[in-house]
């Protein structure tokens, strides 16, 4: 991590790459990935998210961190390379106090890689009045929000629906595995018929409840059913859905639960009033859904329906 003057970012990166020539490391970039984050307890997670994305899809990262605790005119810029398996990618960091934040879009404009898509990860509550919100969303081909950072989901939904439909949400991506699991389980007409007769659905989650509420809203918006939902908080990885219990009017019961030791494995137990099926095992993909969701350019129709329903709450 090298501290450089804003005017030297380009030349310092070039020098860094010149020094890397001997190692035959390739400079890789599939897209520009702009992060906006606040310097708070969520920052390490946002940084790890950036790392996990570029491990799969190398990108030039332009990471803006707002430091409200520092002097308003505070501004520092740093450059570094993120090493990957056979290559590496650029990281440009902009740390700014509140007054200096307005300079960040100008710096970003000067350091975008031409002809590659621009994705924006807005890791705090989306606020159209935020001084960076309009400049950065105007710039980006796709915006990625994180509803786990909001305490007001209906307002969050209304804000997203007012934007061009080229956004996604990390929480929507996080529940992709659950969505796929339920779609696969109830894919046949007879199984779907049982789900449509559900009278009680329990979702066990660890706080915050955003993923659980998304899953609930997704089911109701797609199926048009209104069973009794119970969202029950437990201790586990923050924010995740731990297990799911579905009971139907006809006495069928579907149970899905993550293995506590291997959370990407889900055991599934189905029973009827007469019988009990052998437990099955389903494997979640390891973090690929978030990366895949980022790569799509249009907002999922199902996600728009979910947001519409949330926005009326």
């Amino acid at each position: 991590m090298t501290l450089v003057a804003p005017s030297d970012i380009h030349s310092a990166l070039s020098s860094l790459w010149t020094r890397m020539e001997a190692t035959h490391t390739l400079r890789a970039s599939l897209f520009n990935l702009i992060f906006y984050a606040e310097a708070n307890e969520n920052l390490p997670y946002v940084r790890s998210l950036a790392q996990s994305i570029v491990q799969r899809f190398p990108a030039r990262i332009l990471f803006i961190t707002h430091h409200p605790e520092k002097a308003p005119d505070f501004l520092e810029t740093r450059i570094s390379l993120i090493p990957l398996t056979d290559n590496a990618c650029d990281l440009i960091e902009i740390d700014a106090g509140t007054a200096s934040l307005q300079k960040a879009p100008f710096l970003i404009l000067a350091h975008l890689l031409t002809d590659l898509p621009i994705y924006l990860v807005w890791s705090t509550n989306p606020d159209p009045k935020h001084p960076l919100f309009a400049p950065l969303t105007t710039l980006a081909d796709r915006y990625i929000f994180d509803s786990q950072t909001t305490s007001n989901l209906p307002q969050f939904a209304r804000t997203l629906l007012s934007l061009p439909h080229t956004f996604t949400d990390l929480t929507w991506a996080r529940i992709e595995d659950w969505r796929q699991l339920l779609t696969a389980t109830f894919y046949t007409p007879d199984r779907l018929a049982h789900l449509l007769q559900a009278d009680k659905i329990q979702i066990f989650y660890s706080n915050p409840p955003t993923q659980a509420r998304y899953l609930q809203t997704w089911l109701t918006s797609q199926l048009g059913i209104h069973p009794t939902f119970e969202l029950i908080a437990e201790e586990a990885t923050p924010g995740s859905i731990i297990s799911l219990e579905i009971s139907t009017h006809t006495g069928w019961h579907f149970s899905f639960g993550r293995d506590p030791k291997q959370p990407h494995q889900v055991s599934m137990r189905f029973s009827t009033p007469e019988s009990c099926a052998i437990p099955l095992r389903y494997l979640f993909e390891k973090g690929h859904s978030i990366v895949r969701e980022i790569g799509h350019t249009r907002t999922s129709h199902q996600f728009l329906q979910l947001l519409t329903q949330l926005s009326h709450e």
């Binding site: 003057a5 804003p6 005017s7 501004l75 200096s100 307005q102 300079k103 100008f106 710096l107």
Partner: peptide, 8 residues
């Protein structure tokens, strides 16, 4: 008009 180049 006025603005910023390299944050200046």
């Amino acid at each position: 008009g006025p603005g910023y180049i390299s944050a200046g």
